[in-house]
């Protein structure tokens, strides 16, 4: 897994509620033989492009300072909807390193931590203020998301703390793979299974 320690850059204020995974990546793109890394161009395609395939200049992702922004600011329930991890791969493919929203879809939130994309939960008034500071000086404003110290630094230098599970923070800072960690407990798993075969033999076909 990619490590994540800190990112500084432009944040795109995509200030809508319930940004669902269908909006982030259309399902056909995951059927087509596109690689994970190749999903970036299709991220948010339904709002980035017009039906004729040309860029929609009204879409914030197509506007100058935000085009290569590594951070997204959004409203409640970002990443709701399906379990497709392609949503996270597409965001990463588009260069996104962190998403800041009041809260996230549960499965999307887990998927982020599996891929080194940091979901940061902040109260909505903080996000609105961050968005205001971004738009107040487009081109110059930068936001820092610092996982080591669990803080966001706003364009005007305000420090806003956020919370993250210690276990996940550690795994992300070090790019650790969950599977290897779990398999180091193989003995415990096998002991549990042996005892379960006695209690619930019908589960073990």
């Amino acid at each position: 897994m990619d490590k994540f320690t800190k990112v500084t850059g432009v944040a795109t204020p995509l200030m809508r509620q319930n940004v669902d995974t269908d909006l982030i990546i259309r399902i056909e793109r995951l059927v087509d033989n596109v690689t994970r890394e190749g999903l970036g161009p299709y991220c948010f395609e339904q709002i980035r492009f017009k039906p004729d395939g040309s860029e929609d200049p009204d879409c914030i992702f197509n506007q100058a300072p935000y085009r290569d922004a590594p951070i997204i600011l959004s409203r409640e329930n970002f990443g709701c909807g399906s379990s497709r991890e392609g949503a996270v791969w597409a965001l990463k493919g588009m260069g996104i390193k962190a998403v800041i929203a009041p809260y996230f879809g549960d499965i999307f939130n887990n998927n982020c931590f599996q891929n080194g994309l940091l979901p940061v939960a902040l109260p909505i008034h903080e996000i609105e203020q961050l968005a205001d500071e971004m738009t107040a000086s487009p081109g110059n404003a930068r936001i820092t998301v610092d996982l080591e110290n669990c803080q966001v630094i706003s364009p005007t230098g305000r420090t806003i703390p956020f919370q993250v599970d210690a276990r996940r923070q550690h795994a992300m800072l070090n790019g650790l793979d969950d599977i290897a960690l779990t398999l180091s407990r193989r003995d415990e798993i096998e002991a549990w299974q042996a005892s379960d075969k006695g209690t619930r033999p019908w589960v073990w076909l």
């Binding site: 379990s83 497709r84 499965i107 887990n110 998927n111 599996q114 599977i179 398999l183």
Partner: peptide, 13 residues
């Protein structure tokens, strides 16, 4: 429901 990385984790463990 789970995502793809979690899926690999379940397959493996």
């Amino acid at each position: 429901g789970i995502g793809s990385s979690e899926l690999v984790h379940v397959i493996a463990t």
